[in-house]
Simulated scan of single mutants.
Amino acid sequence: MEIAENAALVVIDVQKGFEEEFWGKRNNPDAEGNIAALIDHWQESGRPVVFVRHDSPAESRSPLRLGHVGNDFKDFVQERRGKGRGPEVLVTKTVNSAFYGEPSLDVWLKEAGIGQIVIAGIQTNMCNETTARMGGNLGYDVVFPLDAMHTFDLAGPFGWSASGDELSRATAVSLHGGRFAKVVTTEDVLRAAG
């Protein structure tokens, strides 16, 4: 695997609201450390970083709603914003895909001549997976370090449910097997990024 000199790190929804009990049991307690390592490496190497924030409507009950402390980035992300040597942008969105946000992620990447994105953040099977699928459809080379993200146990139809680990595995198999993204580890990315 190669990581381009101008590959963009897309850090999705690492917000305080995901620490609330509302979501239930999460997986991958190492996610934040791996996300921080990726941000640090990207900033030190001068590569571009995209910070994505989910802005739920203020009147919603979502822990990510505007005006609620849960809308804020987690401290370890906020402390790193603006510290890199490379370009940085904040994209805000109200849906699952970072490609449907403001400013347009697709336009920003294309104007910068960026063809490869590395996705990290929250949640694995929701906004991360949706962004990866759209990125693949739009022609980007998508890299998906599975240990730099997490999700939560989830109930579905027919009395079915799946744990965060099961959902992460399903996402990894779908993205990698379907050729939407290369599913790797943080260590793989850091090694390839030099």
Rank of each mutant, 00 (worst) to 15 (best):
M1A: 13
I3S: 03
N6T: 12
A7C: 11
L9Q: 11
I12G: 13
V14A: 07
Q15N: 05
K16Q: 15
F18S: 02
F18M: 06
F18H: 11
E19G: 13
E19V: 05
W23R: 15
G24S: 09
N27K: 12
N28G: 09
N28F: 07
P29C: 03
A31F: 06
E32H: 12
N34E: 02
N34G: 05
A37S: 15
I39D: 00
I39S: 00
I39P: 00
Q43L: 00
Q43D: 02
E44C: 04
E44D: 14
R47V: 03
P48N: 01
V50P: 02
R53I: 06
R53F: 03
P57D: 04
A58Y: 01
R61C: 03
L66S: 14
H68I: 00
D72S: 10
F73T: 02
F76D: 08
K83D: 07
R85K: 15
R85V: 06
T92N: 10
K93V: 07
V95A: 13
N96P: 05
Y100S: 08
Y100M: 12
Y100P: 00
E102L: 09
W108H: 13
K110G: 02
G113W: 05
G115V: 10
Q116P: 15
Q123N: 09
Q123V: 14
N128S: 11
T131F: 05
M134V: 15
G135F: 12
L138M: 14
Y140I: 03
Y140Q: 08
V142A: 11
V143N: 00
L146A: 15
A148P: 03
M149K: 00
M149Y: 01
D153T: 13
D153Y: 04
G156E: 15
S168D: 06
A170P: 00
A170N: 04
L175P: 06
G177Y: 03
G178M: 13
R179L: 07
K182Q: 12
V183Q: 01
V184T: 14
V184N: 00
T185G: 01
T186K: 03
E187I: 08
D188C: 02
V189Y: 04
